[in-house]
Amino acid sequence: MKILVCISNVPDTTTKVKFVDNSTKIDVNGIQWVINPWDELALTRALELKDDASNGVQTVTVGHVGLISSEPTLRKALAIGADDAIRINIEAGDAYAIAVQLAEAIRNENFDIILCGIESSDHNGSTVGGMLAELLGYPSVTGVSSVKIENGQLVITREIDGGKEIITVPAPFIAVVQKGIAKEPRIAAMRGIMMARTKPIKVVEPQLIDSLTEVINYEMPKPRAACKYVAADDAGQLIVLLQNEAKVI
């Protein structure tokens, strides 16, 4: 069995974002780039599945659309334990363009399980996984908090409003994964970092494809009104304010 984990290269989640060029681009100065948190959990789960030999997972590959500048993030994924990487060599467009690039690059690679994080922490789109599934004609399950292989069968937990469903689905399939898929992201050990240097990154030339959407500009949120303080001894006054002033209770 072969697993692909799609990863996005995003600013560290503690970044204070700023925009340049008339607010059309993020200011990349000083940004630490990391594996998108959900993708990192997906990768961790893929490696856990591979660790248990009875699951019969041969390889874990990471797939990424981006320029050579995102290779440090791919090397990190390899250091954590992925066997190899595929990088489609173009600056990421919108979700559709990314999904098409991924689909064309992996169509003939015969992955059995494809894991995608439920959203990227930059554009918050939640769309690449589902698009990729549709482009490949694979079934997809979205909101997945557990993927197991039991007697060769895929057993998936899907989070629904107010509960969960235990599902089976035949491979090949795409799981769009969320919280719960792995406890903690796996951290690269020194040995992994050394080994990552020689693991293969296959660079694929991109397709000619147009984005369907375009960011016109970015805006910062309106500053919130300053916090109104209530003394701790007089905490009950807060409830009065919430009722009479904010009118929310």
């Binding site: 439920i118 899907r158 984005s211």
Partner: peptide
């Protein structure tokens, strides 16, 4: 909706209908 069902269906529909998508 931008919940798990919407996140499941909207991207597949986007490809099926060649429709650009804005989520959330």
């Amino acid at each position: 909706a931008n919940n798990n069902s919407g996140k499941a269906l909207a991207p597949r529909l986007s490809v099926r209908l060649k429709a650009g998508i804005a989520s959330g």
